[in-house]
């Protein structure tokens, strides 16, 4: 037991794969993020929780350089370019956006292929594809199907699979459970847990806490564009605790 605690503490003090300082973002004159500082350790799974409108999506988008933003984001010590999502993605940071961002009229297979757009190596491409199809066997049966015609859960699996095709070093997920049945959500989160145990650093944004809390090494609570708490998930004993933090 104490060993497990030590391991978890280590994760939070591990060298940061991603460090944001003073990250702010706005839409026109509306400020949606106010000087957020956050650190993700190598191999960590960090949950970012917060109510609707807290700025969770904006935070992930700001990391990718998608929305107008200020502040600094370092990836393995190197400053990331701002306002250039293509460059950020090429460094190995992949966002599975809110709403999934699939190329809906295209086939499952084409979507996966485009996830590996920057990969030239054919053998490695095959290996990644096998791996993704092993993680999400349901996609295997639907390779030729148009992405938009699948169920929500399958689409989310495809979105994550497509992200994995890029061979990410850091995976950002924006509410992957949104609109999905609990069973499917569980299946997807289990897969994320597996990937994390293999060493993939993950930032998981969710509104609904319980499932994310089971996986997370650390939790940030976001409210009105600010990080209001950084927690160890084992300290959160009940939903009430979370609720108190939200509105503190």
């Amino acid at each position: 037991m104490s060993l497990a605690v030590a391991a978890k503490t280590d994760a939070s003090t591990a060298p940061a794969i991603l460090a944001a300082t003073g990250l702010s973002a706005r839409y026109g004159h509306i400020h949606a993020l106010h000087g957020v500082d956050l650190q993700i350790g190598e191999g960590e799974l960090v949950a970012v929780l917060g109510p609707n409108g807290a700025g969770k999506s904006t935070l992930l988008r700001a990391i990718m350089g998608l929305s107008a933003n200020d502040g600094e984001v370092r990836f393995r010590g190197e400053a990331l370019p701002r306002r250039d999502p293509v460059a950020v993605a090429s460094r190995g940071i992949v966002l599975v956006p809110e709403g999934r961002g699939l190329f809906s009229p295209m086939s499952v297979s084409d979507n996966l292929e485009l996830g590996a757009y920057r990969l030239g190596d054919k053998a490695e491409f095959k290996r990644r594809r096998e791996r993704v199809l092993a993680l999400f066997p349901r996609l295997k049966e639907r390779l030729g199907q148009v992405a938009g015609s699948m169920s929500g859960g399958e689409q989310q699996m495809l979105a994550i699979g497509r992200a994995l095709m890029a061979g990410p070093k850091l995976l950002l997920l924006d509410e992957p459970s949104l609109g999905l049945a609990p069973r499917v959500t569980e299946e997807i989160l289990e897969t994320l847990g597996l990937l994390n145990r293999e060493g993939l650093a993950i930032v998981l944004v969710e509104q609904k806490a319980p499932l994310a809390l089971e996986l997370a090494n650390r939790v940030y609570l976001l409210s009105l564009g600010r990080i209001v708490a950084e927690l160890d998930p084992r300290d959160i004993t009940s939903h009430d605790d979370l609720a108190r933090h939200y509105f503190a």
Binding site: A89, P97, L102, A166
Partner: peptide, 11 residues
Amino acid sequence: INREAAALQGI
């Protein structure tokens, strides 16, 4: 289809 999603794939 989706320029932003394309950019997120590094296209």
